[in-house]
């Protein structure tokens, strides 16, 4: 029987989209009150909404990574790991600057 390997690139794309979602929903949730209210009404609390959607994105991409397993041990593009790093770092910095401007 041929061994099949998890599609690792798909897991990384799931994480990149999840991190983008966290960053954008945090900042636009503060700027667009109807969006924050929509999350709060739908999920009982805006933070629970952001959390559930984050888990859903990672879970769906992980399921896809499992469904689209490969018969070869693929070489994950190193750039995808760096992309995840930079998107995360920029997201964190954007959130810190945004709340610093709001608070002080």
């Amino acid at each position: 029987m041929t061994r099949r390997f998890l599609n690792q690139a798909m897991v990384l794309w799931g994480a990149i989209i999840a991190v983008l979602w966290i960053s954008l929903s945090t900042i636009f949730g503060e700027l667009l009150q109807p969006f924050k209210d929509f999350l709060a009404v739908t999920f009982t609390h805006h933070w629970i909404g952001k959390s559930i959607i984050t888990v859903a994105i990672v879970f769906l991409f992980f399921c896809a990574a499992w469904m689209f397993r490969r018969t070869d041990m693929q070489t994950i593009p190193r750039g995808l790991v760096w992309l995840l790093f930079w998107v995360s770092l920029c997201g964190v910095i954007a959130i810190i600057i945004f709340f610093a401007l709001h608070a002080f």
Partner: peptide
């Protein structure tokens, strides 16, 4: 909100 990044990155 920054906390939400951590489980995702730890999972990866």
């Amino acid at each position: 909100h920054i906390f939400l990044f951590m489980p995702v990155l730890a999972f990866v």
